[in-house]
Amino acid sequence: MVVERAQRLNVLTAEIRLQISSSFQLDCAFEVPSGFTVLFGHSGAGKTSVLDCIAGIKTPDCGKIAMNNQVLFDSKQGLNLWPSQRRLAYVFQSLALFPHLSVAENVSYGLPHEPSNTATERTRKMLAQFGIEGLQDRKPGDLSGGERQRVALARSLVTEPHALLLDEPLAALDRPTRKNIVTDLRNWNTARTVPVLYVTHSVREALALGERVLVMEGGRIIASGPPAELLNPEDWD
């Protein structure tokens, strides 16, 4: 576990220890500053479990998770905020769109407590931000993979989260589509500067996407730094 430190603006900090099975334990500590950080490792390294702990889906046995000065989880204090209280956006690999709702309805679903006119305007702006305003009346089943991904991102980001968690959401897309969506994400984050933690097991994706990389193996962070200094496609892929 890392020593507690003063929180800096727009930094997600996590100290997580969780016994997942008799033979596997998460035991990691790291910071995610504003911008893109890649959480890299082979399948089974514990990457998704880390995101689940940060989001509040899983509860660590001990540790502390904080966003800026807000503590989300602290085992010593007995504090564990509900996922809905954490103001974090989590985009799953499966996307989890509602098939019976239109694109606009899927996006506005994240704003149940906003006045109707406010929700409509925020949804309109988010659809435009991700270039899907012309698809607002379509259902997810009528969209391409890249379009569905944009809808999932728009639905998560319309809530104005304090941090964004991405669990290999672009893995099934072709390289040009991935590049365009990441560009849209970076543009969205230019004015907001929130931490983005992006999970992948692809070295090439980590090299292309990340400003920083956390290398995970066996439930632990074994290295961190610039992707080009830590990852070699010939060694990993």
Rank of each mutant, 00 (worst) to 15 (best):
M1C: 13
V3I: 09
R5I: 11
L12E: 00
A14R: 08
E15M: 09
I16K: 08
L18C: 15
S21L: 08
S22K: 08
S22H: 08
S23H: 14
F24H: 11
F24W: 11
Q25A: 13
L26E: 04
D27G: 11
E31F: 02
E31K: 03
P33A: 10
G35L: 09
T37M: 00
K47G: 12
T48I: 05
V50Y: 01
L51P: 03
C53H: 04
A55Q: 08
G56M: 08
I57N: 00
K58D: 14
T59V: 14
T59Q: 14
G63A: 13
K64L: 14
K64M: 14
I65Q: 02
Q70R: 15
V71D: 09
F73D: 09
D74S: 10
S75H: 07
Q77G: 10
G78A: 07
L79T: 14
L79I: 14
N80Q: 09
L81G: 10
Y90F: 15
Y90E: 06
Y90R: 09
Q93R: 10
Q93S: 08
Q93E: 12
A96D: 06
L97C: 03
F98M: 06
H100R: 10
L101K: 11
V103M: 09
A104F: 14
A104C: 03
N106T: 04
G110N: 09
L111A: 15
P112H: 15
P115C: 05
S116T: 10
S116I: 04
S116L: 12
T118K: 06
A119R: 11
T120A: 15
E121P: 00
R122D: 14
T123R: 03
R124D: 11
M126E: 12
M126R: 10
A128F: 00
Q129G: 03
I132Y: 02
E133Y: 01
G134Y: 02
G134Q: 14
L135F: 12
D137I: 04
R138P: 10
R138D: 10
K139Q: 13
G141E: 12
G141P: 03
E147D: 11
R148H: 06
R148T: 02
R148A: 06
Q149N: 07
A152E: 04
A154E: 06
A154N: 05
A154P: 07
L157K: 03
V158N: 05
T159L: 15
L164E: 01
L166T: 13
L166K: 10
E168S: 05
P169T: 11
A172M: 07
A172K: 05
L173I: 02
D174M: 05
P176H: 10
R178C: 08
N180I: 14
R186I: 06
R186S: 06
N187W: 05
N189V: 01
N189L: 06
N189R: 02
T190W: 15
T193L: 13
V194K: 14
P195Y: 01
V196L: 12
L197M: 09
T200E: 06
T200I: 03
H201E: 03
H201R: 00
S202A: 04
S202I: 00
V203E: 00
A206I: 00
L207Y: 00
L209H: 00
G210T: 06
G210R: 05
R212M: 05
V215A: 09
M216N: 12
G219K: 12
G219I: 15
R220V: 08
R220G: 02
R220S: 10
I222K: 06
A223F: 02
S224R: 06
S224G: 07
E229C: 04
P233A: 02
D237N: 14
D237G: 13
